Simulated scan of single mutants.
Amino acid sequence: MGRVIDGRFELVERLGGGGMGTVWRARDLALDRDVALKEVRPQDPALAEHDPEGARQLRARVLREARALARISHPNVATIHHIVDGPAHPYPWLVMELVPGENVADRLARGTLAPAEAARLGRGVRPP
Rank of each mutant, 00 (worst) to 15 (best):
E65L: 10
A55D: 10
E10P: 01
D44P: 02
P128T: 08
A118D: 04
E65Q: 11
M1S: 13
D106E: 13
P52E: 09
R67F: 01
D106H: 08
A26F: 03
W24G: 07
L113I: 00
F9N: 05
P90F: 03
V12T: 14
P100T: 04
R126P: 01
E65A: 06
E117D: 12
R71Q: 15
G16T: 01
H81L: 13
L94M: 10
E53S: 12
D106V: 00
L69G: 10
V77L: 07
R64E: 10
L29E: 08
H89Q: 14
G21Q: 11
D51L: 03
V77D: 05
V84G: 04
E102G: 04
N76D: 11
G21M: 11
P75V: 11
D85H: 15
V35W: 05
P127G: 11
G16K: 03
G86I: 09
V99N: 10
E39C: 07
A109E: 04
L58T: 13
E10Q: 14
A60H: 12
V104C: 07
G19V: 07
E97L: 13
H89C: 08
V4A: 05
W24M: 11
A66C: 09
A55I: 13
A109D: 07
A48M: 09
V104P: 00
A114E: 14
R64D: 10
E49T: 14
P75G: 08
L63D: 02
P128V: 10
R110S: 00
T22Y: 06
A119C: 10
A68P: 09
R41S: 11
I5P: 08
R110D: 01
V84P: 04
P92F: 11
R59G: 04
